[in-house]
Design a protein around this nucleic acid. Structure first.
Lengths: 212, 212
DNA sequence: CGGCGGCTCCGCCCAAAGTCGGACGACCCC
DNA sequence: GGGGTCGTCCGACTTTGGGCGGAGCCGCCG
């Protein structure tokens, strides 16, 4: 029986090196390469053709979700196991939709990660129990959220920077009343009741950058 | 020359195991123990008496900053090197104030971390260049922020959950006017101009949980 | 063509948020 | 005890925010 060929993708060098050493102790697993972001990962997958990619989700340049989507569409035979430290509802759903065969947390025991990699190589799925819980909560959730219009999204992102309606109106060159109208309708669509809640929502969903 | 005795503190098992293996390759460094949170770390420091503690900052139970403060006051001869994946202004300053002798990022090269540990053991300081930049920006910054009172912090955390003044008043069993008063004064202290900005600030500074 | 639905835009009205000024008790220091 | 500072509390006033209805402008379809 031949080894499972693994590609590690994480922007933290320390994490990559640590994982490589840990994988080295498993006789049936072999790390064939490392990448520091999604774009590198795609290049390496093309040349190395690993069986499984262990992918961090929060990365610069090209994040893990986007990388997973692209990777799965170009190399359907390469499986992806997401490995992340944060448990974000949206990310679980997004990366599963994107084609990941696993979702593990960095705080899991290493054995669980190895088992998820082996499962992925066999075409099976392994999710951390916490990720499973989030997934079902998301799927069965009555949260059929209506999509926001372009203008509404624009307004929301400005609200999420702490701007007042007046300031937003000046920025967009419309009347303050117009901005209020957009705020009202986006609140209704999101099922929220104040701009503060909207700002928090936008941040949580990653609709806007954390700094700015 | 005797080895530098190191205690690893991180809530992620994968990270701890990885670091332990990586340290194992350095002939002059020796990992003598691991802890999953600040409280465990304090107990282990007492029994193991390491030379240097490598401390993650974001941990449950007792976070790294608090643990560092407590540790340094009880064991002044034990040095601390902070190791974290996020670069937060506040944390850099806080943990240095708390007595850390180093601040490294998980995305640094492993060699830099080892060098920081050796430096700490010699009583020297090593900061990642990015942490240095944040530190000087913070120190020279005109942002001498006044501390919030207990009540103000309480109100802020509720504001950061998207609650209205009325709802906060009911929760705290005071008049709405009182809540407004607290909001006003905390806005003044933070140099902000709306509750939305305050909520965003609270989230960024980690004064409140991301879910709730 | 006429009608319909979605998006952007706006004015009016009331509720929520924020400012200002002040009362009261706790504490400290002379 | 008198004077100072600080934190919590509150009411009256102004500013901002959000709901409601409606106008003009498309593009779509019968």
């Amino acid at each position: 029986m031949t080894k499972v060929r693994v590609l590690l993708v994480d922007d933290h060098t320390v994490v990559r090196k640590g994982l490589r050493l840990a994988f080295g102790l498993e006789p049936d697993l072999e790390v064939v390469g490392e990448a520091g972001n999604g774009r590198e990962a795609l290049d390496l997958v093309e040349s190395l053709r690993p069986d499984v990619v262990v992918m961090d989700l929060l990365m610069p340049v090209m994040d893990g979700v986007e990388a997973t989507r692209e990777l799965r569409s170009r190399f359907p035979d390469v499986e992806v196991v997401a490995l992340t430290s944060v448990l974000e509802d949206r990310m679980v759903v997004d990366v599963i939709e994107a084609g990941a065969a696993g979702y593990m947390l960095k705080e899991s025991r290493p054995g669980e990660l190895f088992e998820a990699v082996r499962a992925a190589a066999r075409g099976e799925v392994r999710l951390d129990p916490r990720a499973q819980a989030r997934l079902v909560r998301e799927v069965r959730g009555p949260k059929l959220r209506e999509p926001l219009t372009e203008r509404e999204s624009e307004v929301l992102s400005l609200v999420a920077k702490g701007m007042t309606n007046k300031a937003i109106a000046q920025r967009l060159d419309v009347a303050e009343a117009t901005v209020k109208s957009h705020v009202s309708s986006l609140l209704a669509k999101l099922g929220l009741r104040s701009r503060t809640q909207a700002a928090l929502f936008a941040l949580r969903e990653g609709l806007v950058d954390r700094d700015a």
